[in-house]
Design a protein around this nucleic acid. Structure first.
Length: 560
RNA sequence: UGACCUAUGGUGUAAUUGGCAACACGUCUGACUCUGGAUCAGAAGAGUCCAGGUUCGACCCCUGGUAGGUCAACCA
């Protein structure tokens, strides 16, 4: 990773704050962050921003970053998610160096903390129902009422709490609450719930516990236990900060600093785990790793590289104001990265046959093709060329506008790495009128590399030899949502109303032989078309490619 | 009608103890090109939410508005 620690100005307000702290000698100049996902879903591009921020900050200031699973709610969490999260963070290029922790590791310690609060008279067991508690909570503009159980003695509270832990009470019958201020203007300070009873098996602690700490009683303490200096989280936790600080202060333990930043939003994208889960569960997509999903696993399968995602996270910036990033920026980032790295290959997605009438029938030439013009070291390969080829149907027009640089009757065009050809005639289906064959002649003197080949023609086409063409399944993806803001729907509807019915188009195309023998996750540029990635569904008999992103297309833009 | 947060070109982010607003994406030109890609050169686009104030000078400080966001899960 690039170390920009020496740069004159901090990259963002968090780094500015850290540099100020370092100057003042806070924490002895130590910088320790953590990425704290709840294992209740797959990671998405918004998490990537947070991962890059947390790990990136540690890297920049020679600090450490922990991976910590915030697993305090057994009813929603699962090892499947733990595994995917570990995989994704690693894949993104970050290393927690063995500091893989779980809030559940701290259950015993957290329990001690709770007893300490009880003893201090700062927490009490409340027998009110969830509904009653909600009712007495008040509203943001009206103070709440104190629970009738608020003034139980520490002894009684301790006894009750121990019996809660011992499993004497059913779910929901009692909770442990902090005793703070029912009239606080901050709703989170109105005697928040610290522990609740849940008789559910936990993915790590099994049935050892039947009381579980709430987020507010687990997160800050976990940070403190790990010696986290900067607890970076998203804006919605801003109002929790007074409670975060309250717990730390009352417990008299090391005080990390919580800092909030604005979460990532992207156009044409939903970013909540709940909604992504819904898309998966209801089969609107094929799974968490569906290439249309904004999940890390989806982006990976789509053909995105870790570098491109990291760069995106950088470009997006870190600040406190709500933002909506143009999904085009993400696309820019993959293109930029893949342009430097991707093997070039020729493939025809919407084929039409092209016959070179004056080319010998039995001849096959092996045309040397550049693997990557951006990287000479990538070398060359041979592409078979014959009399009958497939070209892109869109590369021919019978009656072209003046700005059309491709093939048309009587016009010349270059076949990349091969010859200049001239269109002589076309054959059409008598019924549909569709063009079935394009007949051309070629000029043998114009072979790529020959002196005559310098003749100027306006266009260059990609092609695949019909005899050597390998049929492949190509999956063309479009945005999952039709509206820039998927939430922008008529009354009574929800974001699913904006689902794009054409977000996946599966077609059959032809690729040059080289492309056939590739492995899942191999990345290519199909010349003139876009970047593609071999899908995990690929087989020797039927290669499958995902289109990661199309090339920038100024012709398409000019047309419209 | 409470508390907290935010407000800078189309989008996002900068502007280091206040010194005439910078970068990226996007857009538009032109050059080059055996990818209408890439690359190169250039342009347009904000006077910093509004109104006052402090100051020689305010995006930055103060006051008051306005707009948007967050908060009333035994979720995180």
């Amino acid at each position: 990773m690039e170390n920009t620690g020496e740069s004159k100005t901090p990259a963002n307000f968090i780094h500015a704050m850290i540099e100020e702290d370092i100057r003042n000698g806070k924490n002895g100049g130590r910088v320790h962050t953590r990425f704290p996902p709840e294992p209740n879903g797959y990671l998405h591009i918004g998490h990537a921003k947070s991962i890059c921020l947390n790990f990136g900050t540690a890297l920049k200031y020679n600090g450490k970053c922990n991976l910590r699973f915030d697993d305090t709610n057994p009813v929603k969490e699962d090892v499947e998610y733990v595994d995917s999260i570990r995989y994704d963070v690693h894949w993104l290029g970050f290393d927690w160096e063995g500091r893989e922790f779980y809030a559940s590791d701290y259950f015993p310690k957290l329990y001690e903390f709770a007893e300490k609060l009880i003893l201090k008279g700062k927490a009490y067991v409340c027998d009110l129902t969830a509904e009653q508690i909600a009712e007495q909570k008040g509203t943001p503009t009206r103070p709440g009422q104190e629970s009738p159980y608020r003034n139980r003695t520490p002894e009684e509270n301790l006894d009750l709490f121990r019996r809660m832990k011992a499993g004497e009470f059913p779910d929901g019958s009692r909770v442990l609450r902090a005793k703070i201020d029912m009239a606080s203007p901050n709703m989170h300070m109105r005697d928040p719930i610290l522990y609740r009873i849940i008789h559910t098996e936990h993915h790590r602690t099994g049935n050892q516990w039947c009381i579980y700490p709430m987020y507010d009683f687990a997160h800050g303490q976990s940070d403190s236990i790990e010696g986290i200096t900067y607890s970076i989280c998203t804006l919605e936790f801003e109002v929790h900060r007074p409670l975060y600080d309250w717990c730390i202060r009352e417990l008299e333990i090391f005080a990390p600093q919580q800092i909030e930043f604005a979460r990532l939003n992207m156009t044409y994208t939903v970013m909540s785990k709940r909604k992504l889960l819904e898309l998966v569960k209801n089969n609107f997509v094929s799974g968490w790793d569906d290439p249309r999903m904004p999940t890390i696993s989806g982006l990976r399968r789509r053909g995105y590289t870790p570098e491109s995602i990291r760069n995106f996270s950088d470009l997006v910036g870190v600040a406190k104001r709500e933002n909506v990033i143009d999904v085009g920026l993400l696309e820019f980032c993959v293109r930029e990265d893949l342009n430097k790295k991707a093997q070039r290959v020729m493939g025809v997605l919407n084929p039409v046959k092209l016959i070179i009438d004056n080319y010998p029938e039995e001849l096959t030439e092996e045309m040397p093709a550049v693997n990557n013009p951006e990287n000479p070291e990538a070398g060359t390969r041979k592409v078979p060329f014959t009399r009958e080829l497939y070209i892109e149907r869109e590369d021919f027009m019978e009656d072209p506008p003046s700005k059309f640089f491709r093939l048309a009757p009587g016009r010349e065009v270059r076949l990349k790495y091969a010859y200049i050809i001239k269109c002589e005639s076309v054959v059409k289906d008598p019924v549909s009128g569709e063009i079935t064959e394009i007949h051309c002649t070629y000029d043998p003197e114009t072979l790529s590399g020959r002196p005559e080949s310098n003749r100027k023609v306006k266009g260059t086409l990609h092609w695949v030899s019909a005899a050597h063409a390998v049929e492949a399944e190509i999956r063309l993806y479009d945005r999952l949502f039709m509206s820039e803001d998927p939430e922008d729907v008529p009354e009574g509807e929800d974001y699913k109303k904006n689902l794009n019915p054409d977000s996946l188009k599966v077609i059959r195309g032809y690729v040059e032989p080289f492309a056939a023998g590739t492995k899942p996750l191999d990345k290519f540029q199909f010349e003139r078309l876009g970047y593609f990635c071999t899908d995990s569904d690929t087989t020797a008999a039927k290669p499958v490619f995902n289109r990661t992103v199309a090339l920038k297309d100024s012709w398409a833009k000019a047309k419209s």
